[in-house]
Amino acid sequence: VLGHHLNDNAETILMRLIEGSGIKGLSGIQQNSLHSFYNSLDSLEPTSFYTVFRPMLNIKKEQILNFCKSNNIDFVIDKTNDDKSRFRNNMRHNILPLLTESFGDSAIENIVSSSVNLNQARLINNEVLSTHLQEHFLENKDNVKIMNISKLKKKSLAIRSGIIKLAIESAIEKNSLSKKPRLPIKKYIESVNLLIDSENPSSSIDLGKGIEVRREYEDISLELGKERKKINKIFALKIEGITNLEEFGIFAESLLTKKSSSSGLSKNSKNVILLDNDTLHEEIVFRTRREGDRFFPANSNGSKKLKKYLIDMKIPKIKRDSMPLLATGSEIIWIVGHEYSSNYQVAETTKNLLQITLKELRN
């Protein structure tokens, strides 16, 4: 329970007005508010939650002081309150008295009354924007919010900015960032709008605090607290065995068999590939892409640089450095989940088959 009073609220509202706050900041101090408790500043997740109550928020400071004096109740005054170099103290000792002197004692009540009206407008505004947010944003299992740019551009700038603001505030809340110093939400919104209007089809903005906004062609995504690192490790495929690809979150099962006895084998799919084992003369490995990689797409007459192929397939840039590839030397055999090379396809002359099946790695 805290002792904030009407004057405190008026000071806060005027300070935020001078600082250029939005509708949320100008709504002032709330009567009750929910807060998170962290064991330390480095903690990523709150250990508990608590509610702050401010029962005297609608009472003037003068009334509280008079009540204490009339009832012989002792109180403490913070010495720093007299330091007029502080923003709040300057507001308290210089600006508010000037306002009440010029416009009467009701000036403080009117300032707070306006903030109450703004808070009501904010709640209505958020309800409308939440409908737009739910309509256009999808949140996948990797905690990424994705939205189609062409749909977003059809909205007015005000609605679009409001949707972005709500999405970012949701990200801040879910990423446990509310305990940090005040974040420049307005600057974040401007940055995201620039990204949406950019002619560059693949770009990103790091907002800091574990939040990154990416544009990949017609999609814009808001990614929370997840740092993608390029996987440089090489995994040699174990023929007729299991290869643990832990960094990719999967493992590979390989099976060598004669073509004549292959009736029970699976067909090529996103997670399965059948290869002509007799055409594989060098070591086969799982790895990420490298400079100079080439690929012979199935049903094509020649090779392509892997980079160009991935761009043509509109595979997002963020995925290109972390997606698993099956390779031999600088030649790509299989872009996992997408396409396989024509050089190692099973043909009529194939005698020995190599089947590789990928499965999700579970604890």
Rank of each mutant, 00 (worst) to 15 (best):
S161V: 03
A158W: 05
N126R: 12
A158V: 05
I149M: 03
L129T: 00
N126H: 09
D142Q: 15
H132P: 04
I124F: 12
M147D: 09
A121S: 08
K153Y: 14
N140G: 02
S106K: 13
L152Y: 15
L118G: 00
L123S: 06
I146L: 12
L118A: 09
S114F: 14
E135G: 05
S106F: 10
F137D: 05
I168M: 14
E109D: 11
L138S: 06
K145M: 06
E139Y: 10
N119R: 07
V116R: 07
L166F: 05
H132K: 09
L133V: 13
E135W: 11
I168Y: 10
V112R: 02
A107G: 04
E109N: 09
Q120C: 15
S161W: 00
L166H: 03
L133A: 08
K165D: 10
L166T: 04
I111A: 01
E127D: 07
V116L: 07
N126V: 05
S156I: 09
S161C: 03
M147E: 02
R122G: 00
I168S: 10
R122I: 09
L138E: 11
I168G: 01
L129C: 00
S115P: 00
A167F: 12
F137I: 13
I163C: 09
V144A: 15
A107E: 05
L152S: 14
N140H: 01
A107R: 08
S113C: 06
L152E: 01
N125A: 02
N125G: 00
S156W: 15
S161R: 00
L166R: 15
I146N: 11
N140K: 12
H132N: 11
K153I: 13
K165N: 13
I163H: 05
A121K: 12
I108V: 10
K155A: 05
D142V: 09
V112I: 02
I111L: 06
I149Y: 04
S115A: 05
K141H: 12
L129Q: 00
E139C: 13
N117R: 09
N143K: 15
I168W: 11
N148A: 07
E135L: 01
N117K: 15
R160E: 07
I111E: 03
L129N: 01
V128W: 03
L118Q: 10
L166P: 06
L166Q: 07
E135I: 14
E109S: 02
S150P: 03
K151G: 00
N119G: 13
I163A: 04
V128N: 04
E139S: 11
Q134F: 15
N125C: 02
H136I: 08
K145W: 14
L129A: 01
A167W: 06
S106P: 09
H132E: 03
I108A: 12
K153Q: 07
N143F: 13
L123N: 02
A158L: 03
A121Y: 12
M147P: 01
K145F: 14
G162K: 00
N148W: 07
S114M: 13
V128S: 04
S130A: 06
D142W: 14
I124E: 12
E135F: 15
R122A: 01
S115N: 08
A167V: 11
S130P: 01
V144Y: 14
H132I: 04
I164W: 02
I159K: 06
